[in-house]
Computed example of a mutant assay.
Amino acid sequence: MSIPKSLYLCVKLMPLMQALHLPVMVRYNCKISSAKGKIRLNAPIRPMMMTVGFESVGIFDKKYERSIVQIDGELELGSGKVMIGQGGRLCIMEGANLRFKGKFENSAMIEIICKNNISIGNNVLTSWDILMMDTDFHQTINTCDGIRNSAEGKITIGDNVWIGARCVVLKNTDIPAGCVVGANTTVNKNFTEENCLLVGYPAEVKKHNVTRANENE
């Protein structure tokens, strides 16, 4: 049931011979709000390099919490599989670049809003109810000197990062490799230390020398 909509999306965003491999698969009830951009593959093409709306968590209802996809900018896919869970919303605006360097997993209900640049490393795991956006949409202005602050920034997430449930990742954020972001944390600045626990509003380093254990350890 998901093949026709997935094929339509791929044909809109990729050369035909690549699109026929169905490198991106969206669930049949996924809403494609716009597809004016392009998908770039930085790895050998294969089916289902990215899936949207299939992963599930028992507390969410697939029937009513459907996914939404808007790709008007550029989406880059690397060598690992990208899984956007049920109810995931993906918005890449015109001129923006969202890059997945490798494997990425989301369980459900992630919202990624990219108006400028978001780069996500390999083997990144995210829980449910995640908001990630590199823009405030509206500028602020200093009332003393009249200087405007840019509404857009960048987000960089390193390899082997784990982001817990209901976290918010905002513009001008750098989460180094191996970091764990605790549930309900808001990250809005650059960190430099790898393998640490980030917790709070706004996020602060709470523990050092800690990272996510591999499943086979």
Rank of each mutant, 00 (worst) to 15 (best):
G78A: 13
L198C: 06
R66K: 13
V180G: 00
D145W: 03
L20I: 14
L7V: 07
L41E: 11
G200L: 05
E105F: 15
I130F: 06
D134W: 07
K103L: 02
I92D: 02
G164D: 00
L197N: 02
S150Y: 12
L9R: 06
Q70R: 15
L16Y: 11
L75K: 11
K115Y: 07
A96P: 09
L131Y: 12
H21F: 12
V57M: 11
R212S: 04
R148S: 06
E204R: 15
G58I: 13
D136R: 05
F100S: 01
N214A: 07
D136T: 06
I112N: 04
E105V: 10
K206G: 03
V161D: 01
K38F: 06
V26Y: 03
R148G: 02
C114W: 04
Y8C: 12
E215N: 15
T186R: 02
E65H: 12
V161P: 00
T186P: 01
G80H: 08
K36P: 03
L9W: 07
R166F: 05
S127F: 03
H208L: 09
A213Q: 13
G121C: 04
V82Q: 09
G73L: 06
K103G: 02
N97G: 08
N122T: 02
E105L: 14
R27A: 15
R212E: 00
E111G: 07
I59N: 11
R148H: 05
K36F: 05
A35S: 04
G80I: 09
N184T: 12
N160G: 01
A165D: 08
V69F: 10
G178V: 01
N116M: 11
H208A: 04
N116P: 09
D129W: 05
V199M: 13
L98Y: 01
L77A: 06
K171Y: 10
N42H: 13
K38E: 13
K12G: 04
E194N: 01
L90G: 07
K63T: 14
L41Y: 10
V205Y: 00
C196E: 00
A183M: 15
E193N: 02
S107A: 14
Q70S: 13
H208S: 09
R212P: 03
A177C: 04
T143L: 12
S34M: 15
A108I: 15
L41V: 13
G73A: 12
N172E: 09
K62V: 07
N209R: 05
F100H: 00
M132L: 14
C10F: 09
A165N: 12
K63R: 12
T143Q: 04
L20A: 07
Q18K: 10
T185F: 00
F100E: 02
M133S: 11
V26T: 06
H21S: 15
V26N: 05
I68N: 02
S67P: 09
V57Q: 10
K101Y: 09
E76A: 03
E193A: 00
E215S: 12
K189W: 08
T186M: 11
G80P: 09
E193L: 01
Y201M: 14
L170H: 05
M14K: 03
C10S: 08
I141E: 15
V52I: 14
H138S: 03
L20P: 09
R99I: 11
I175N: 02
K206P: 03
L131G: 10
L197C: 02
N216S: 15
F191T: 00
